[in-house]
Design a protein around this nucleic acid. Structure first.
Lengths: 119, 119
DNA sequence: CAGTATACTTTCTAAAAGGTAAGTACCTTA
DNA sequence: TAAGGTACTTACCTTTTAGAAAGTATACTG
């Protein structure tokens, strides 16, 4: 597997590249909400337990820069911003679903209660 | 999404749980070799560019503790240890493949040369 | 009895990721 | 003119992840 560069960073393989775009603690939870609904900033904040303003803003900005979500700012006061998934973002959803299902499978094997998670 | 505990750690969702088992820089590259061949420690080291002894050992141990790979030690000198995938480990391969394919898709969209990666 | 081969193990360090808390900007409304 | 509501931004700190380099154990071989 040859290394390659993108945006000033060296990657060893495609998995690393993929995980650099949608990995981390918060990007998938964000995509998971936005996949079937438009959300305002404050709605995302409420919908995603434990997330801080700093992380919500930075991860939204990265997802936007990578083209996975769209940011619509309204010129009103108090401010209003809406986030929605893009066509490119929709391409990630089957994978997110697969990771989630795999996680549920593993949890089940370890005896973790999994009855809350729809399948 | 309710939080849950496993092995002394709090998780927010199944994706986090899954990524805690097979995520990080080195676990997937290891699984990717071992999926269709038995490897000795030194063979893995040679097969996975850039990996350090410390990371190779620690990630092998974690994958073993989580039941994804099997470790067979031979009582010879110099030492010989063989690593192979388990049935549980095989369950992860379709997901690993999916992540890899998604990464290749993204790279292609960004104009990264992708011709080396079999599909 | 020094050298070799293999599979680790340990220590120290650097970089990345993420948390907390406080602050900013803006216009409207009382 | 002060307060309120929303969407950030910034500074500082802690934790996690990974890298580099050196060391350990063992038995065979010349």
């Amino acid at each position: 597997m040859p290394d390659f560069m993108y945006d000033g960073k060296v990657y060893y393989n495609p998995v690393e590249f993929a995980m650099d775009r949608i990995g981390g603690t918060w990007k998938i939870p964000i995509l998971w909400r936005v996949k079937d609904q438009v959300y305002r900033y404050s709605e995302l904040k409420r919908a995603i337990p434990h997330i801080s303003d700093k992380m919500l803003t930075s991860q939204l900005r990265e997802l936007q820069n990578d083209g996975f979500i769209h940011r619509e700012v309204y010129a009103v006061v108090p401010p209003k911003t809406e986030y929605s998934i893009t066509e490119k973002g929709k391409l990630a959803i089957p994978l997110v679903t697969a990771i989630r299902n795999f996680g549920i499978d593993l949890m089940e094997m370890e005896g973790v209660d999994v009855s809350h998670y729809g399948r």
